[in-house]
């Protein structure tokens, strides 16, 4: 299943946030969206998943999701969004219960996703007992449980420290290598973008427009921490963004 955005614009009252975004998200690839803060990249992600509606333009699904897909467009949030009163297992079963999946079938799915995210022995833990990285792995496990056609990741590693971030990036790469998934990955961190993106969409400051789309051909599992070719790309991206980021930083916040 592909996603196509055509001519998406958005404004709150007369405050323009996004301008004429046209973008294709091909199946089986990770598209990273980078941009200075306040450029509307998270808003764009909420449009893609149908949590908000743009004032102009449309978001299209092309083709239908696979049969065993419970929730085609599935988010992974920056703040994890785990229910603090449910255990790791309970948080995952939450998203299965509404599809009538209980008992042995649910157990099988939960055991599988916990194994894939290396959380099997923590299934009884409450979120308050887990570190930030583990919480995000639970959120990833929960997303995997519904077998999404497209994963919508909103700065998933931004709340974590840099070591945990490295570890989780490796986890994401190995998850993708085993079974490639489609993802839109919003981040302000260029290192994440060059590690995980097949293509990187660079946005301008508000009103957000697409400045450039950078494609990376190196397979994900061959990209490593401190790779010089990646550093080059990252430098190039930063040079694209630098002025925008500076200008965005100097802007007054409209609330």
């Amino acid at each position: 299943m592909d996603i196509r955005l055509s001519g998406v614009s958005h404004s709150y009252d007369d405050f323009e946030v996004l301008r004429d975004i046209t973008l294709e998200i091909p199946s089986g690839r990770i598209v990273c969206i980078v941009g200075p803060s306040g450029c509307g990249k998270s808003t764009l992600l909420r449009f893609i998943g149908g949590l908000e509606q743009p004032t102009k333009g449309e978001v299209l699904q092309i083709g239908s999701p696979p049969k065993d897909c419970l929730n085609p467009l599935t988010y992974i949030f920056q703040d994890f969004a785990l229910l603090p009163w449910r255990s790791v297992r309970g948080n995952i079963s939450l998203v299965l219960e509404d599809h009538g999946i209980r008992g042995a079938r649910a157990e099988a799915i939960i055991a599988d996703v916990l194994a894939r995210t290396k959380l099997t022995e923590f299934h009884k833990a409450l979120p308050k007992q887990l570190s930030g990285g583990m919480k995000q792995r639970v959120a990833i496990a929960r997303a995997l449980a519904v077998n999404p056609a497209v994963m919508l990741m909103d700065e998933p590693l931004s709340a974590l420290d840099s070591q945990t971030r490295e570890l989780l990036m490796d986890d994401l790469v190995s998850l993708w290598t085993r079974t490639p998934f489609t993802a839109v990955y919003v981040t302000h961190n260029l290192a994440e973008a060059v590690r995980l993106g097949h293509s990187i969409v660079v946005m301008s400051r508000r009103p957000g427009e697409i400045r450039e789309v950078v494609h990376l051909e190196t397979p994900l599992d061959q990209r490593h921490y401190g790779d010089s070719a990646l550093e080059e790309k990252q430098k190039y991206l930063w040079q694209l963004m630098r002025e925008e980021a500076r200008a965005a930083d100097a802007e007054l916040v409209h609330v």
Binding site: N71, F77, D79, A81, E97
Partner: peptide, 20 residues
């Protein structure tokens, strides 16, 4: 953000009220 999460996983209105 928890309610948003519930909506993003297509939980029914009743489920969101009861479980979140």
């Amino acid at each position: 953000s928890l309610i948003r999460m519930g909506q993003s996983f297509n939980l029914s209105w009743m489920s969101i009220v009861r479980k979140i």
